[in-house]
Amino acid sequence: MIDERSEQYLKTIGQMEEEGEQATTSSLARSLGISMPSVTEMLQRLSGKGLVHHRRRGPVSLTKEGQRLANSLIRRHRLWEAFLVRFLGFSWEEVHEEACRLEHATSSGLEERLADFLRGLDTCPHGHAIPAKAGLRRAEPAVPLSKFPAPGPVRVARIQDETAQFLRRLTRLDISPGRVLQTEGVSSADGSVRVRLDGRSHQVPAEVAEQIMVQPAQTEETPADRTVAVSELRPNQVGIITDLSGGRSFMARLLALGCSPGTEVKVVHNSGHGPLIVSVRGTRIALGRGEAERLRVKRVDI
């Protein structure tokens, strides 16, 4: 088959195409951290094998065969990442390297079983869609945070730089796929982006913002849409249960008492500390504070 380095190239080009970018010799060189001549040489070899279309100093694209290989690699990579995080307790920082090693050692049989097993999971921990067997599809349109026309609310879609070091920075900033941030402005001095998250402001450096792909958030999150824990509601406030967390026996107890998702919960008594009393389906239930913190509701203003 082909060697690891070639696979690496194919994968990178595939990812760029996924983002709707046109791969060029220079963008590849930058992305892989390799000199242009080496890139050119490699591309010629790949072209010779019928995996890429390449013209000198022109755009690079994958042939059908190249696409197939790239897709398979990317798919394996993301399947492994998803599996490691979900089932083996890895953090999102640790999995990229592991997946990079595993993707080259995965047969198509293993890939299929992994995909079957993970039925239901469709993104990797960094927000990228796991491609189907058929092929890579265009990723949902998103722009780097550095290019987003601030101010405005954005949702983090995916992270391009999957190295451990980078992700650790993001973890410190509490930025991950799905998070909604308020962008407030781009600094003209150094291109860093001011964002607001959980009520706190952060200055995100330009080179970090470049790797965070965002989409405009639909509407500004109003207090009524956000989910809160029941423990945060005041007496006489009503919420609709969105989810329960915290172990099966806890969930089972709550469910048996009537607290299923979609049910209305009214807080009868909440003194801010100690247990609460809520009313669910006409029954009054006392909940310990820890338990109330694990029951999330969407506030409903009557």
Binding site: F250, R253, P275
Partner: peptide, 9 residues
């Protein structure tokens, strides 16, 4: 198993 208790009428 946590404090979850019905308050009967």
């Amino acid at each position: 198993t946590g404090f979850v208790m019905e308050l009967p009428r």
